[in-house]
Design a protein around this nucleic acid. Structure first.
Length: 429
RNA sequence: GCGGUCGUGGCGAAGCGGUCAACGCACCGGAUUGUGGCUCCGGCAUUCGUGGGUUCGAUUCCCACCGGUCGCCCCA
């Protein structure tokens, strides 16, 4: 096959789409209760938005962006990440001037990253995320985390781990950075090549390295938590206190460093602990990014958010064997036999449809038996039969597929009868 | 970007140099000329991922590429 979807992309077929729609409806409903409003931003941005917003030293910017030049010579990039585009929109549209503060936003986005695909990692991926701009109150941090956890909980997931850390403010980070460089410099030659680079660029990320995880210097490395200044420490304590009050369990991981440059203070990750989930266990990640608005040309506005991968969310639902309540049945299947009946069927089917009843029919002039099979396949609740016998008496036979009961219904009463049947049927179930 | 593994009909899966290919499921038709989920019979691969090569001959051997999958890096 030569015409294939590009590597790392996937078609989501109707059956699967039903699951997505269900999940999306739950997430939207939660956002509604938390009073977050949806924002939609362009699929691509000026490349600079991500270079400045996400950070030049990050893997995303260095090797994962789909960047292209348009016919006007502009460098554009398919968004690899949500926060930078949302913050750009926040600044550009001066939402910092909105009378309602903070600004609480959610989004569903398709993102693009040039990576080697594997399960739970696609080149085109879907994320649901949330951003709150305009408040530096620790209760907001806790609320955002609570929102994320609520999403998983209401979808029935339970094998989850919330990992929490604080990266501190600028001053704390600088002090910690200095300590890290001093600590690791003597061992530079023993560290992996990535970490040798990180030592200069972003020593914090050495802590997150899997290659050097067992190096003795790791254990004794200075923890950011020991370098938090008073404000940062208090802030972190308050976030934890709010989570405790909401009874949201978490574990502290001093080595949790998020991959993007813009994070400070609260950083968190939600992982799946379900058996057989695969190597990639991160379901969602987020944190605070005070200062990012300035980086993108706006006034200094505090912000915090998270994003969760929807592909991974669906995977986790499967891994925990959760059956989503998806109704794939059709209410009625109309069976017509004979030319006259088939012609009249189209008319009756349309009449039922415009009166709010879900109906499907055969389109291939098949025999009654085959039409019944089709009705079964569609899990039809009722079959409506119109043939020569019925035509003579101006009636139709309505068969309840579950009970097998069949009754004659005058054509003039069909809509009314079906409305009554279907209403009654749903009440019983 | 690196490494392992795999690529046969709509799906699952045999064949592993020599009649262009078992079997199962699904689907279509018939037995049963107006009633489904059972049974029986029949039908259903003119590119065996793509392109080269070896050979008298390749789905079967070799190479490259493409793709899936698992892992590494990193992340959602």
């Amino acid at each position: 096959m030569s015409m294939r979807a590009p590597r790392g992309t996937a078609d989501i077929l109707p059956n699967e789409v039903k699951r997505w729609q269900y999940v999306e409806s739950i997430l939207k409903d939660i956002c509604d209760r938390f009073n977050y409003d949806e924002i939609r931003t362009p699929l691509f941005e000026h490349t600079e938005v991500f270079q400045r917003g996400v950070g030049d030293s990050t893997d995303i910017v260095q090797k994962e962006m789909y960047t292209f030049e348009d016919r006007g010579g502009r460098s554009l990039t398919l968004r690899p990440e949500g926060t930078a585009t949302v913050v750009r929109a926040f600044v550009e549209n001066k939402l910092y001037g909105s009378p309602i503060q903070p600004v609480k936003l959610f989004y569903f986005m398709q993102l693009f990253r040039y990576e080697r695909p594997q399960q739970g990692r696609m080149r085109q991926l879907n994320q649901f995320g949330v951003e709150v701009l305009g408040s530096a109150d620790p209760s907001v941090d806790a609320e955002v985390i609570a929102l994320a956890m609520t999403c998983y909980k209401e979808l029935g997931l339970s094998s989850l781990k919330l990992v929490l850390n604080s990266l501190g403010d600028k001053e704390s980070r600088q002090n910690h950075r200095k300590a890290l460089v001093e600590h690791f410099s003597p061992y530079k030659d023993e560290l992996c090549s990535d970490c040798q680079k990180r030592l200069n660029q972003n020593p914090l990320r050495i802590l997150d390295c899997k290659t050097d995880r067992d190096h003795p210097a790791m254990k004794t490395a200075p923890s950011i938590l020991d370098y938090l200044n008073e404000y940062s420490e208090q802030y972190f304590n308050q976030v934890k206190a709010y989570l405790d009050m909401m009874e949201i369990p978490y574990v502290i991981d001093q080595n949790l460093v998020r991959g993007l440059d813009y994070y400070n203070h609260t950083a968190f990750e939600i992982m799946s602990e379900a058996e057989g989930f695969g190597a990639i266990t991160t379901l969602a990640g987020g944190g605070r990014y005070n200062g990012l608005t300035e980086e993108l040309g706006g006034p200094n506005t505090p912000g915090i958010g998270f994003a969760m991968g929807l592909e991974r969310l669906l995977m986790a639902i499967d891994a925990e064997n959760i059956k989503l309540p998806i109704d794939s049945s059709v209410d009625c299947f109309f069976i017509a036999v004979g030319e006259t009946a088939e012609k009249q069927a189209s008319q009756l089917v349309h009449k039922l449809r415009v009166n709010g009843i879900q109906v499907d029919k055969d389109y291939q002039g098949r025999k009654m038996k085959a039409q019944f099979k089709a009705a079964d396949r569609l899990k039809a609740k009722y079959v409506i039969i119109l043939g020569d016998n019925e035509l003579e008496d101006d009636i139709v036979n309505v068969k309840n597929m579950k009970t097998g009961d069949q009754t004659e219904v005058p054509l003039t009463d069909l809509v009314k009868t079906m409305q009554a049947e279907l209403l009654g049927g749903s009440q019983n179930e």
